[in-house]
Design a protein around this nucleic acid. Structure first.
Lengths: 195, 195
DNA sequence: AATAACATACAGGCTGCATGTATGCAAGAG
DNA sequence: CTCTTGCATACATGCAGCCTGTATGTTATT
């Protein structure tokens, strides 16, 4: 009966860490980074500021953990809805659509595309993206070029360019833009590149 | 002799406003928005915080003025180096190069592309861009489509997409990326779109 | 004399750290 | 094998410094 109250240290840590990240995710998706104070975060997580600064170096480090988790969630949603057995060109199209779907979750665009570069810096934000979402795009493009569906060109900037185009699409759609028009534009983009 | 000390109110205002914007531009290009305090800004401008809050509603309003001025400067540099009498396609290419040149000024990428969306919000940042740099791009694309150099497609998202591609190029080049490779990629982008 | 353009003083909030406390854990004594 | 004892981990609380925005005071302009 008292076993409930007796938890291992590892359990305690993981629980509060998860609570802090969950609270941070909810709040960072709702408001801008600087409009959220650590008191608000810990209140929502049901812990104190002491716990926060025990697990994370500072507020920025918590945000980095949240952004990484969110990027991983996006990548997971994309991979989950990928057909696997299509041509490289079609796989890219399908991945793009899945990306727009995933980024339609409220607040995600600001968290990952607006706040992350500002709070963590362009380099760190890009590293997070490269570790999750952009990685599959990078591989897909490499495959497409090797398969001859696309002329050879530098892959790093190509990946960054297409990624930026989709980011902008997600941002504009979240701001009320027409998804249909964006899909048309992105279709032209791929059609032009895939010769 | 004492005429030097007697200035009109309009002069006083314009002088201190300009000093504040200049100091803000210098500092916002050097460090991140939240790493700069208003005491540092007014010290550099040679005034007090009272003057700042007399001319601007808050720190964010000063940043908005700085960002607007900086975007205007970028647009001016682009227009200054445009040949005027070329084909729509070549005009776009030349404008793109001029944009990359203009954005090579240290700190401009962070100020306009990283901090501005985070501090002012995506909508306001886009409005600033549309009022200056993106306007010429928008018009150029409209012209290219009307001239038949490009298939018809929604212009707003097309402008946003190409703008985002160039922004990403400027960002990556500022972070040490190869400008040559980026020009290759952007060339492929235009080539693909211009049918 | 009245108003605009500042300068100065003040209040509130927030971040990061430093100190204090309780709980889990690991090793040696018995 | 058990129990205690010393230590590390996981927090909680209080404090110091800074920063922002405002309110009030002062000087220069009209």
């Amino acid at each position: 009966m008292q076993e409930i109250r007796r938890r291992s240290n590892k359990d305690r840590s993981e629980t509060t860490r998860a609570a802090l990240i969950a609270a941070g995710r909810a709040l960072f998706a709702e408001k801008a980074y600087s409009d959220i104070g650590t008191p608000e975060i810990v209140a929502r997580a049901g812990v104190t500021r002491g716990a926060l600064y025990h697990h994370f170096a500072d507020k920025q480090a918590l945000f980095a953990a949240v952004a990484d988790a969110e990027a991983a969630a996006v990548a997971s949603e994309i991979e989950q809805s990928s057909p696997e057995d299509t041509s490289p060109a079609q796989a890219l199209l399908a991945g793009g659509k899945a990306y727009l779907d995933a980024m339609a979750v409220p607040g995600r665009t600001r968290l990952l595309l607006i706040d992350a570069p500002a709070v963590l810096g362009h380099a760190e934000a890009k590293a997070i993206d490269m570790r999750h979402g952009a990685r599959t795009l990078h591989d897909g493009l490499t495959l497409a070029i090797e398969a001859g569906a696309m002329p050879a060109m530098p892959i790093e900037p190509l990946t960054a360019m297409i990624s930026a185009a989709f980011d902008q699409a997600a941002l504009d759609i979240a701001a009320g833009g027409s998804r249909k028009e964006w899909e048309e534009i992105l279709g032209h983009l791929f059609a032009g590149l895939l010769r």
